[in-house]
Amino acid sequence: MADHPKRAFPAITQANHHFWCGGKDGSLHILRCGDCGHWIHPYAARCPACRSAEIAPQPVSGRATVVGFTVNHQQWQPDFEVPYVVAIVELEEQSDIRLMTNMPRTPIEDVKVGMPVKVCFEQHGEIFCPLFEAA
């Protein structure tokens, strides 16, 4: 297994399993309304666009755009290798489906606001942590 930082993951539940564990099949999974097609993240029990209860995870393209990022230099945890990038990406499917992420496979100096990126995964047991890299 690749060398990667210890991450503080949430408890895996029925509500978040698709996001944290869904990458096993190579795709990022996001909840989607079966009636109007609206993407929903984080979890909600009714579609905010049409109030439908028909909500289920679906794979997305994994393509996204960096809308903001920070290069962190502070050693918050002994095993975090600094500096590292924390970025906010907007999924191609819907602009308010925005994820915080890391980009360990992209050189720090290459990270720019507006750059296209694609999803990749880092396995921690049953969890496939979604990360992004230059597209």
């Binding site: 930082p5 991450r7 503080a8 993951f9 949430p10 408890a11 978040n16 984080p42 809308v67 903001g68 990022f69 920070t70 962190n72 502070q74 918050w76 945890q77 975090f80 590292y84 924390v86 970025a87 906010i88 994820l99 915080m100 992420t101 890391n102 606001v113 942590c129």
Partner: peptide, 29 residues
């Protein structure tokens, strides 16, 4: 040992245990 819940669930796993990181992303945009 932190098991993040609520809004923290989507940020803390990304080596982001501090509000400085969360707000720095807003500032960058």
């Amino acid at each position: 040992g932190w098991v993040p819940t609520g809004g923290m669930e989507w940020m803390v796993p990304y080596q982001a245990p501090s509000a400085s990181i969360w707000i720095a992303c807003h500032a960058s945009t």
